[in-house]
Simulated scan of single mutants.
Amino acid sequence: MSDRPNPSVTDNEKRTRQPYSERLWVPLWWWPVAFGIAGLLAAEIHMGAPGIRAWLPYVLLFPIPAWVLLWLSRHRVAVTEDDRGTPELRADRAHLPVNFVARAAVVAPTAKSAAMGRQLDPAAYVQHRPWIGPMVLLVLDDPDDPTPYWLISTRRPEKILAALGLPSAG
Protein backbone atom coordinates (compact mmCIF):
# COMPACT_ATOMS: atom_id res chain seq x y z
CA MET A 1 0.00 0.00 0.00
CA SER A 2 1.06 3.50 -0.73
CA ASP A 3 0.92 6.48 1.62
CA ARG A 4 -0.36 8.68 -1.21
CA PRO A 5 -3.86 10.14 -1.00
CA ASN A 6 -6.62 9.00 -3.29
CA PRO A 7 -5.64 10.19 -6.79
CA SER A 8 -9.24 10.34 -8.02
CA VAL A 9 -9.56 14.07 -7.33
CA THR A 10 -6.38 16.13 -7.34
CA ASP A 11 -5.93 19.62 -5.97
CA ASN A 12 -5.65 20.91 -9.54
CA GLU A 13 -9.01 19.40 -10.47
CA LYS A 14 -10.63 20.96 -7.40
CA ARG A 15 -9.26 24.36 -8.34
CA THR A 16 -10.38 24.21 -11.97
CA ARG A 17 -13.90 22.88 -11.40
CA GLN A 18 -16.36 25.43 -12.75
CA PRO A 19 -20.01 25.27 -11.74
CA TYR A 20 -20.84 28.00 -14.28
CA SER A 21 -19.04 29.63 -17.20
CA GLU A 22 -20.27 31.98 -19.91
CA ARG A 23 -18.65 33.95 -22.68
CA LEU A 24 -20.43 37.17 -23.59
CA TRP A 25 -20.61 36.75 -27.37
CA VAL A 26 -22.02 39.43 -29.64
CA PRO A 27 -25.34 38.50 -31.33
CA LEU A 28 -25.05 36.25 -34.38
CA TRP A 29 -26.80 38.74 -36.64
CA TRP A 30 -23.93 41.19 -36.15
CA TRP A 31 -21.59 38.92 -38.16
CA PRO A 32 -23.32 39.17 -41.57
CA VAL A 33 -23.96 42.87 -41.03
CA ALA A 34 -20.27 43.51 -40.24
CA PHE A 35 -19.08 41.48 -43.24
CA GLY A 36 -21.67 43.19 -45.45
CA ILE A 37 -20.35 46.61 -44.43
CA ALA A 38 -16.76 45.48 -45.06
CA GLY A 39 -17.81 44.05 -48.43
CA LEU A 40 -19.53 47.29 -49.47
CA LEU A 41 -16.49 49.33 -48.45
CA ALA A 42 -14.16 46.94 -50.32
CA ALA A 43 -16.41 47.11 -53.42
CA GLU A 44 -16.33 50.91 -53.25
CA ILE A 45 -12.53 50.85 -53.23
CA HIS A 46 -12.45 48.11 -55.89
CA MET A 47 -14.47 50.24 -58.37
CA GLY A 48 -11.60 52.60 -58.96
CA ALA A 49 -8.74 50.09 -59.14
CA PRO A 50 -8.30 47.51 -61.92
CA GLY A 51 -5.94 44.55 -61.92
CA ILE A 52 -4.25 43.24 -58.80
CA ARG A 53 -5.53 46.15 -56.76
CA ALA A 54 -9.11 44.97 -57.37
CA TRP A 55 -8.98 42.08 -54.86
CA LEU A 56 -6.66 43.80 -52.38
CA PRO A 57 -9.41 45.73 -50.51
CA TYR A 58 -11.32 42.48 -49.88
CA VAL A 59 -8.24 40.72 -48.49
CA LEU A 60 -7.35 43.66 -46.28
CA LEU A 61 -10.84 44.60 -45.05
CA PHE A 62 -12.49 41.23 -44.35
CA PRO A 63 -10.31 40.31 -41.34
CA ILE A 64 -11.20 43.59 -39.63
CA PRO A 65 -14.86 42.80 -38.76
CA ALA A 66 -13.87 39.31 -37.57
CA TRP A 67 -11.22 40.80 -35.27
CA VAL A 68 -13.58 43.52 -33.96
CA LEU A 69 -16.43 41.08 -33.22
CA LEU A 70 -14.10 38.59 -31.52
CA TRP A 71 -12.57 41.42 -29.49
CA LEU A 72 -16.03 42.57 -28.37
CA SER A 73 -16.82 38.96 -27.38
CA ARG A 74 -13.69 38.48 -25.26
CA HIS A 75 -15.37 38.88 -21.85
CA ARG A 76 -16.13 35.87 -19.66
CA VAL A 77 -18.23 35.44 -16.54
CA ALA A 78 -17.63 32.32 -14.46
CA VAL A 79 -18.26 30.89 -11.03
CA THR A 80 -15.28 28.88 -9.80
CA GLU A 81 -14.22 27.38 -6.49
CA ASP A 82 -11.10 28.41 -4.61
CA ASP A 83 -8.76 26.07 -2.69
CA ARG A 84 -11.21 25.75 0.21
CA GLY A 85 -14.17 25.01 -2.06
CA THR A 86 -15.72 28.45 -1.58
CA PRO A 87 -17.42 29.70 -4.75
CA GLU A 88 -16.27 32.96 -6.28
CA LEU A 89 -17.46 35.03 -9.21
CA ARG A 90 -14.93 35.81 -11.93
CA ALA A 91 -15.64 38.61 -14.37
CA ASP A 92 -12.64 38.69 -16.67
CA ARG A 93 -9.64 39.20 -14.36
CA ALA A 94 -11.65 40.46 -11.39
CA HIS A 95 -12.87 37.94 -8.82
CA LEU A 96 -15.28 38.18 -5.92
CA PRO A 97 -15.46 35.52 -3.17
CA VAL A 98 -19.06 34.75 -2.24
CA ASN A 99 -18.44 35.36 1.48
CA PHE A 100 -18.24 39.14 0.73
CA VAL A 101 -21.69 39.22 -0.89
CA ALA A 102 -24.44 40.48 1.44
CA ARG A 103 -27.32 40.03 -1.00
CA ALA A 104 -27.91 39.51 -4.69
CA ALA A 105 -30.60 40.38 -7.21
CA VAL A 106 -31.40 39.88 -10.85
CA VAL A 107 -31.71 43.11 -12.83
CA ALA A 108 -34.29 42.60 -15.55
CA PRO A 109 -33.68 44.10 -19.00
CA THR A 110 -36.50 46.57 -18.34
CA ALA A 111 -34.75 47.86 -15.18
CA LYS A 112 -31.30 47.97 -16.74
CA SER A 113 -31.64 51.59 -17.86
CA ALA A 114 -32.33 52.79 -14.30
CA ALA A 115 -29.58 50.59 -12.82
CA MET A 116 -27.03 51.93 -15.31
CA GLY A 117 -28.32 55.50 -15.20
CA ARG A 118 -29.54 57.57 -12.31
CA GLN A 119 -29.20 54.78 -9.71
CA LEU A 120 -25.60 53.85 -10.58
CA ASP A 121 -23.02 54.43 -7.86
CA PRO A 122 -19.76 55.71 -9.41
CA ALA A 123 -17.73 53.45 -7.10
CA ALA A 124 -19.50 50.28 -8.29
CA TYR A 125 -17.73 47.62 -10.35
CA VAL A 126 -19.61 47.38 -13.65
CA GLN A 127 -19.12 44.98 -16.53
CA HIS A 128 -21.82 46.01 -18.97
CA ARG A 129 -22.43 44.67 -22.46
CA PRO A 130 -25.22 46.55 -24.27
CA TRP A 131 -26.25 43.52 -26.36
CA ILE A 132 -27.02 41.43 -23.27
CA GLY A 133 -30.32 42.23 -21.55
CA PRO A 134 -30.26 40.93 -17.95
CA MET A 135 -27.69 41.70 -15.29
CA VAL A 136 -26.85 40.42 -11.84
CA LEU A 137 -26.41 42.78 -8.89
CA LEU A 138 -24.17 41.66 -6.02
CA VAL A 139 -24.19 43.99 -2.99
CA LEU A 140 -20.94 43.73 -1.03
CA ASP A 141 -20.37 43.53 2.70
CA ASP A 142 -16.63 44.18 2.95
CA PRO A 143 -15.44 47.06 5.17
CA ASP A 144 -12.02 47.09 3.46
CA ASP A 145 -13.46 47.51 -0.05
CA PRO A 146 -14.89 50.87 -1.17
CA THR A 147 -16.88 49.15 -3.93
CA PRO A 148 -20.55 49.05 -2.84
CA TYR A 149 -21.71 46.47 -5.40
CA TRP A 150 -20.96 44.61 -8.62
CA LEU A 151 -23.22 44.91 -11.66
CA ILE A 152 -22.45 42.25 -14.26
CA SER A 153 -24.09 41.54 -17.63
CA THR A 154 -25.07 37.91 -18.11
CA ARG A 155 -27.56 35.96 -20.17
CA ARG A 156 -28.43 33.62 -17.28
CA PRO A 157 -28.37 35.54 -13.97
CA GLU A 158 -30.37 32.86 -12.12
CA LYS A 159 -27.73 30.24 -12.96
CA ILE A 160 -24.94 32.48 -11.65
CA LEU A 161 -26.77 33.06 -8.38
CA ALA A 162 -27.51 29.33 -8.06
CA ALA A 163 -23.85 28.46 -8.71
CA LEU A 164 -22.81 30.99 -6.04
CA GLY A 165 -25.39 29.55 -3.63
CA LEU A 166 -27.19 32.88 -3.27
CA PRO A 167 -30.95 33.43 -3.22
CA SER A 168 -32.30 35.81 -5.85
CA ALA A 169 -34.00 38.91 -4.48
CA GLY A 170 -35.17 40.24 -7.82
Rank of each mutant, 00 (worst) to 15 (best):
W30S: 07
W30G: 04
W30T: 04
W30I: 05
W30Y: 09
W30V: 07
W30C: 03
W30N: 07
W31E: 09
W31M: 14
W31G: 06
W31F: 11
W31Y: 13
V33A: 12
V33T: 08
A34H: 02
A34R: 02
F35R: 10
F35N: 11
F35D: 15
G36R: 00
G36V: 02
G36E: 02
I37H: 07
I37E: 01
I37C: 06
I37F: 06
I37K: 03
I37G: 05
A38Y: 00
A38K: 02
A38L: 00
A38R: 01
G39R: 04
G39H: 03
G39P: 07
G39V: 03
L40W: 07
L40I: 15
L40A: 11
L40C: 15
L41I: 14
L41C: 11
L41H: 02
A42R: 03
A42F: 00
A42Y: 01
A42G: 06
A43G: 05
A43E: 02
A43L: 00
A43I: 04
A43W: 01
A43K: 01
E44M: 14
E44F: 04
E44A: 14
E44Y: 05
I45E: 06
I45D: 08
H46T: 12
H46Q: 09
H46G: 13
H46E: 12
M47H: 09
M47N: 11
G48Y: 11
G48R: 11
G48E: 07
A49D: 11
A49L: 15
A49C: 13
P50G: 05
P50Y: 04
P50D: 06
P50V: 05
P50W: 04
P50K: 05
G51K: 08
G51S: 06
G51M: 03
I52A: 15
I52D: 12
I52G: 09
I52H: 13
I52P: 09
R53K: 13
R53S: 15
R53E: 09
R53P: 13
R53F: 10
A54H: 07
A54R: 14
A54C: 14
A54S: 14
A54P: 07
A54M: 08
W55R: 11
W55F: 06
W55E: 14
W55C: 13
L56Q: 10
L56D: 12
L56E: 08
P57W: 01
P57T: 03
P57F: 01
P57V: 04
P57K: 03
P57Y: 02
Y58W: 15
Y58R: 12
Y58A: 10
Y58D: 14
Y58V: 12
Y58C: 14
V59G: 14
V59R: 07
V59C: 08
L60G: 06
L60M: 11
L60S: 12
L60E: 08
L61K: 01
F62A: 10
F62P: 04
F62T: 05
P63E: 00
I64Y: 02
I64T: 01
P65V: 03
P65E: 01
P65T: 04
P65D: 00
P65F: 00
A66H: 10
A66K: 04
A66G: 10
A66Q: 12
W67Q: 05
W67E: 13
W67P: 09
V68A: 06
V68W: 01
V68S: 01
L69M: 14
L69H: 14
L70P: 09
L70H: 11
L70R: 11
W71E: 12
W71I: 15
W71L: 12
W71K: 08
